[in-house]
Design a protein around this nucleic acid. Structure first.
Lengths: 160, 160
DNA sequence: CACGATTGAGTTGTACACAACTGAATTACT
DNA sequence: AGTAATTCAGTTGTGTACAACTCAATCGTG
């Protein structure tokens, strides 16, 4: 059947290409700008995220880092090892719970914060957005993430 | 000096953590939902993007695929090879330009489109957004991407 | 026609991201 | 107390991303 060149569903495929491509592209573009700006600091974008959390909240177990950044140990373990190799953090087995590993900032890691302070402004200016627009976009994205996370759990078994 | 616990710049670092984390998380959440839905089709999210372009536009050289998806040959070459290994596409050296490789859909690759038609609706429902909201977000993201791309080129030499 | 520059695909090396797994430590339950 | 279930970090394997590079084919210019 269906020799029609463009079934009605084709419009949906086109739309899907557009939206998922837009998000994918935006994420990679963001990543690219951070890559350029963070090169001076010797950090990658995910490494910068980890450092931001540590600067804000101090030493944390790997587990807590993973919860805040939604990264699992498979991603975080080697990443933190690279930060350690760079001399920015130290890893220490917790005394109370031998399973847990706390990530500590070194002096060098703490000092790097001073140089990182200019990063956000450079990013903001790169987006061309003002504070309100950034806030609005962020709210939208968080809403989207929440919906997608909820759906991911449901979809796992559904769809058949 | 500066024993003050939170310099004014700290607010910017916090904001930066929020916005870049939001985008990062949204992108990964989107990826996660696609991963679940595309598992039935045996495709990853980037592979699905390639198939969408091929379904829409027919056979294309690797170069054209890369331009549309903003992926370079380092990413695309192995990806297309995996699609070929899965029997969905064929690669053929172009006759006119021996440097160029055209990616052709196989019968199996073309047939897969039928099964992919339900993907967009499942994604849409997972987002919890309606058509207008998706369109608005997409416009915002494209605007952001354009600004970031322009800035990336400028920032390369600037910032010093 | 010749030759240097450019182009298209592919390779190499590094760094995420994540599923699936391992192993050790801790907790829960009986 | 003693064992099963859980938790935390780490490892392994696959698949992107992307910079930097190679190599062959093609183009541009003299």
């Amino acid at each position: 059947m269906t020799a029609s060149p463009l079934p009605p569903d084709a419009d949906w495929l086109r739309l899907d290409r557009q939206i998922c491509f837009s998000l994918h592209a935006a994420s990679r573009a963001f990543n690219g700008v951070y890559r350029v700006i963070l090169k001076d600091l010797g950090l990658t974008y995910p490494q910068y995220l980890v450092m931001l959390v540590l600067w804000e909240q101090g030493d944390l177990p790997v587990k807590a880092l993973g919860e805040q950044l939604r990264l699992d140990s498979g991603t975080l373990s080697p990443l933190v090892k690279r930060l350690e190799a760079a001399g920015l953090v130290r890893r220490e087995r917790s005394a109370e719970d031998e399973r847990s590993v706390r990530v500590h900032l070194t002096g060098e890691g703490t000092a790097l914060r001073e140089r990182a302070l200019e990063v956000p402004r450079r990013i903001m200016s790169a987006t061309g957005f003002d504070l309100a627009e950034v806030g609005e976009l962020r709210a939208r994205l968080d809403q989207l993430t929440a919906a997608l996370d909820a759906a991911a759990r449901t979809e796992a078994g559904a769809g058949r």
